[in-house]
């Protein structure tokens, strides 16, 4: 069966990868909740993942908010529905664009950095060295990053929400001629807690997934500089795809009738 064999092979390979990732995830999560924990490592990663991502997330958010106001104005003015712009901006930013764009930007920044760092540690035997020093690499390297990702992404997205809405506000006031007080009032009145909460839940999921992908690909990298490069690419690509996939799933869970 020369046609069926490759299909079978790739199917098996696909499920092997799924199984490996699942086992890796279970093992890592179990180390997140069992002592000893490494608070110093968690703090360091929170700084690295959260604080140092602020500029890139802030810039992404402000321009997204600005362009959102501008584009919806072009569309909505045809129906004289300009007053819906504050609503559009705040719902789009908090529900979708804040978490997804922040997640993608942090995936590019953090998943890549994690994969490169852990991958280099793997190929230079630093991970083996950890084991010989009676320190479990899952506990010392991976658990702190997962915890930091899970905690910091919601905070980052909260900041992105505020800056994104601010971006929309600035464009609406200074180029589209909205009344500042009315705009703010509309924004505030239209915003529902569930919009923000669902966005923050997404952020936590993305934070977990993007650090997980960085760790998984870094931990399993092989074969020197080229292997580490490959791991970095795979980490960013798989993290981005998983962000879109989980975004759909979480949206369905929150908002599907």
């Amino acid at each position: 069966m020369p046609i069926l064999a490759p299909i079978g092979r790739s199917t098996i390979a696909f499920f092997t990868v799924i199984g490996r990732v699942a086992l890796f995830t279970l093992l890592s999560v179990s180390h997140c909740v069992r002592p000893p924990i490494f608070p110093r490592q968690i703090g360091r990663q929170m700084l690295e993942i959260g604080f140092y991502s602020l500029p890139v997330v802030g810039l992404t958010a402000i321009f997204t908010g600005m362009v959102l106001a501008l584009q919806s104005f072009t569309g909505f003015s045809r129906f004289s529905a300009e007053s819906a712009i504050p609503n559009i901006v705040v719902v789009s930013i908090t529900r979708e664009l804040g978490p997804v764009l922040a997640g993608l930007m942090v995936a590019g920044r953090v998943s890549a950095a994690i994969a490169a760092e852990i991958g280099t540690m793997r190929v230079t035997e630093q991970i083996d060295a950890l084991t010989t020093l009676s320190t479990n690499p899952h506990k010392y390297l991976i658990a702190p990053r997962l915890i930091a990702g899970l905690l910091m992404l919601p905070l980052l997205v909260l900041v992105a929400d505020i800056i994104g809405v601010l971006g929309g506000y600035l464009v609406s006031i200074f180029t589209l001629g909205f009344n500042p007080a009315t705009y703010l009032k509309n924004t505030w009145d239209f915003m529902q807690p569930i919009d923000v909460i669902s966005g923050l839940v997404k952020a936590a999921v993305f934070g977990f997934l993007l650090t997980l992908m960085g760790c998984y690909h870094g931990y399993n990298s092989r074969g020197g500089a080229q292997g580490v490069g490959q791991a970095t690419t795979n980490a960013v690509v798989s993290a981005s795809v998983l962000i879109f996939l989980s975004n759909y799933i979480v949206t369905t869970l929150f908002f599907a009738e």
Binding site: E117, T124, E125, Q126, A129, T131, T132, S134
Partner: peptide, 20 residues
């Protein structure tokens, strides 16, 4: 295994120092 590991010390070929 962790108990046994406490008995071990290893010098790696490339040093394997933690560069962070």
């Amino acid at each position: 295994r962790e108990d046994i590991m406490h008995k071990f010390g290893m010098l790696f070929q490339g040093g394997a120092l933690f560069d962070s």
